[in-house]
Design a protein around this nucleic acid. Structure first.
Length: 423
RNA sequence: GGAGAGAUGGCCGAGUGGUCGAAGGCGCACGCCUGGAAAGUGUGUAUACCUCACAAGGGUAUCGAGGGUUCGAAUCCCUCUCUCUCCGCCA
C-alpha cells in the first residue's frame, strides 16, 4: 500500500511511475485526494467537538463537587446534544477512512527507475546468463519420465491420496528433497540469515499484512472452519513476525530464512506448464527475507541476487537472471529479479526464484517500522526471495544430469544425500 | 472439550466513575559527579491521526479488540480474542 503522504505530495510522479506498470492511476488518485480532504476536515471537526465536550465534562465535575447542582444540570443538557454530533462525525470519519483505505489498496507499488519498460515477459531484460546449456544424449527424457524410471516421484499416488499437483517423493527422491532443504538452509544461515520454522497456516491479519488478502484469496487454501489460510510461501509468516513492530536501526538489516511447504491453488493453467513438477499445489521452498533501511535496500537486493546466483553455481545449473519489466513485475514489487534455470529435456527456462524489493509497500500496510539513530520512526523496506524453490530445481537437476548410467548428483549435495548417483 | 483466574506503557506493577497518557520501580538515553568506572543524582523516555513548515507548540484517540451506559470510563455492562491454572483428551 502506498503512503497517503506520498500521494498528497507527489501525485504527478506517482501517476507517472505507475504508467510503467500499465496502470492508469489518475482517476483513483483524484478520488483518494478528495476522500483524504474530507477525512481531514471531518477529523478536525471531530477533534474540536471532543475537546469542547471534554472541557464541559470537567466543569460539570467541578460544579457537582462544589454542590452547584443546578448549573451542572444545565451544562449536562448542553453536552448531551453535542454527543449526537460526535457520533455522526465519528461514523463519517470511520466511513471515510475505510473508503480511503479501500482506494489506496487498489494502487500497485511504483516501479524503480531501473525497471525496464514493457508489457510482456518478452520485454524482460536478461541481465546475465551463465553455465553451459546442457547437450543431452539422444534418449534423454523429461523429468516426469525419469521420476518414474528411477521410482523417485510418484505422481499417481499423490493424485490418489490427495489430487493432481501433490506428488509423492520416494526413496532417493525423498532423500534428495531433504538434502536440498538442508543445503539451502545451511547456506542461508552461513550468509547471516536467521533460521525460522514458521506455522504453515496463518490468520487473516497476516494474509492481509503481506498482501495476499484482500485481492488474492482465491489463490490460497482456506480452512474455513477456523478461518486460517495455508501459506503460499514462508514469506507470509516470516514477514508477519515483524508486523506492528518498531525495530531499532542497529537491528537492521534483519535477515531471516525459513523452509516451508507452500500451498497454492493456482487455478487456470494447463498443458506443459503443469506437467510433472513444473507447477504444483504443494511444494517445498526455502525463503530469504530482509528488512532494511531505504538507503540500503537496493544494495540488499543485489546482495540477495548474488547470494542466489551462488546457489545456482554450486548446483552447477545453467541459469539466467531477468530484470522484470514494468508490465511483468508483481503488484507489490518495486523491482524484481527472476532467476531461471534451464531444464534441458523440456528445453525451457524454469523460474526457480523471484527476488523483490517491496520498499515500503508491505511495511506500510504492516506497520513495520524502525527508529532511526536520530530517533525518528519510519517505515522499513522489505525484500524477499526464494532460495530456492525445490521442484523446478529438482526437475532441472534430473533432466540436465541424466546419463545412461543414471542421474548425477551435484558435488555440494553429496554430503547431504549420501549418494552421488540415482540409478 | 469442561471449570476457574486474568489481559495496564520496553518490562514489572499501582490504579474500581471525574482534571489518568496513566503513580512507583526496572530498563534505556543524555547530563552532573569521577582520574576512569560503579554508586549517587538530575532530566527525558509510547503510537497514530489532525493543525502546522514532515519545526516548535497545540488538539484528539489509544490501559487486549469491538460495542454500550454516563455530562465524564483504565475503572460499570455486553460480545469477542488471547493468556494462565486445574480436569479431560492426545503426538
Amino acid at each position: 500500500m502506498l503512503q497517503i503522504s506520498l500521494i498528497r505530495e507527489q501525485k504527478e510522479q506517482v501517476a507517472q511511475a505507475l504508467k510503467k506498470k500499465n496502470f492508469d492511476a489518475a482517476e483513483i488518485i483524484e478520488r483518494i485526494l478528495e476522500v483524504d480532504q474530507q477525512r481531514r476536515i471531518t477529523q478536525k471537526k471531530l477533534d474540536d467537538t471532543l475537546a469542547e465536550s471534554k472541557i464541559m465534562a470537567r466543569e460539570i465535575g467541578t460544579l457537582m463537587k462544589s454542590g452547584q447542582q443546578e448549573k451542572a444540570n444545565k451544562l449536562r443538557e448542553e453536552t448531551s446534544r453535542g454527543k449526537i454530533v460526535v457520533k455522526e462525525l465519528q461514523d463519517k470519519l470511520a466511513q471515510l477512512e475505510s473508503e480511503q483505505e479501500s482506494l489506496l489498496v487498489l494502487l500497485p507499488n511504483m516501479p524503480h527507475d531501473t525497471v525496464p519498460a514493457g508489457n510482456t515477459p518478452d520485454d524482460n531484460e536478461v541481465v546475465t546468463q551463465e553455465g553451459e546449456i546442457t547437450e543431452l544424449h539422444q534418449d534423454a527424457v523429461p523429468h516426469w519420465e525419469l521420476a518414474t524410471k528411477y521410482d523417485i516421484i510418484d505422481f499417481e499416488a499423490g493424485t490418489k491420496i490427495t489430487g493432481a499437483g501433490f506428488p509423492v517423493y520416494k526413496g532417493k527422491g525423498a532423500k534428495l528433497q531433504r538434502a536440498l532443504i538442508s543445503f539451502f538452509l545451511d547456506e542461508a544461515t552461513q550468509a547471516g540469515y536467521t533460521e525460522y520454522q514458521p506455522p504453515l497456516m496463518v490468520n487473516e491479519a497476516s494474509a492481509y499484512g503481506t498482501g495476499q488478502l484482500p485481492d488474492k484469496d482465491g489463490q490460497m487454501y482456506h480452512v474455513t472452519l477456523d478461518n486460517l489460510y495455508m501459506i503460499p510461501t514462508a514469506e507470509v509468516p516470516v514477514t508477519n513476525l515483524f508486523r506492528d513492530v518498531i525495530l531499532q536501526e542497529n537491528q537492521l538489516p534483519a535477515r531471516s530464512t525459513a523452509y516451508s511447504a507452500c500451498f497454492r491453488r493456482e487455478a487456470g493453467s494447463y498443458g506443459k506448464d503443469v506437467r510433472g513438477l513444473n507447477r504444483l499445489h504443494q511444494f517445498d521452498k526455502v525463503e530469504i527475507v530482509q528488512l532494511t533501511t531505504p538507503e540500503a535496500s537496493y544494495q540488499a537486493l543485489e546482495e540477495m541476487r548474488e547470494y542466489v546466483t551462488g546457489l545456482l553455481r554450486k548446483l552447477e545449473l545453467p541459469f539466467r537472471i531477468l530484470n522484470l519489466c514494468g508490465g511483468d513485475i508483481s503488484f507489490a514489487s518495486a523491482k524484481t529479479y527472476d532467476m531461471e534455470v534451464f531444464s534441458a529435456a523440456q528445453n525451457r527456462w524454469l523460474e526457480v526464484s523471484s527476488i523483490s524489493n517491496f520498499e515500503t509497500f508491505q511495511s506500510n500496510r504492516m506497520k513495520l517500522r524502525y527508529k532511526t539513530k536520530e530517533g525518528k520512526t519510519i517505515l522499513a523496506h522489505t525484500l524477499n526471495g526464494s532460495a530456492l524453490a525445490l521442484p523446478r530445481i529438482l526437475a532441472a537437476l534430473l533432466e540436465n544430469n541424466q546419463t545412461e548410467q543414471g542421474i548425477k548428483i551435484p558435488k555440494v549435495l553429496v554430503p547431504y544425500t549420501g549418494f552421488d548417483n540415482i540409478s
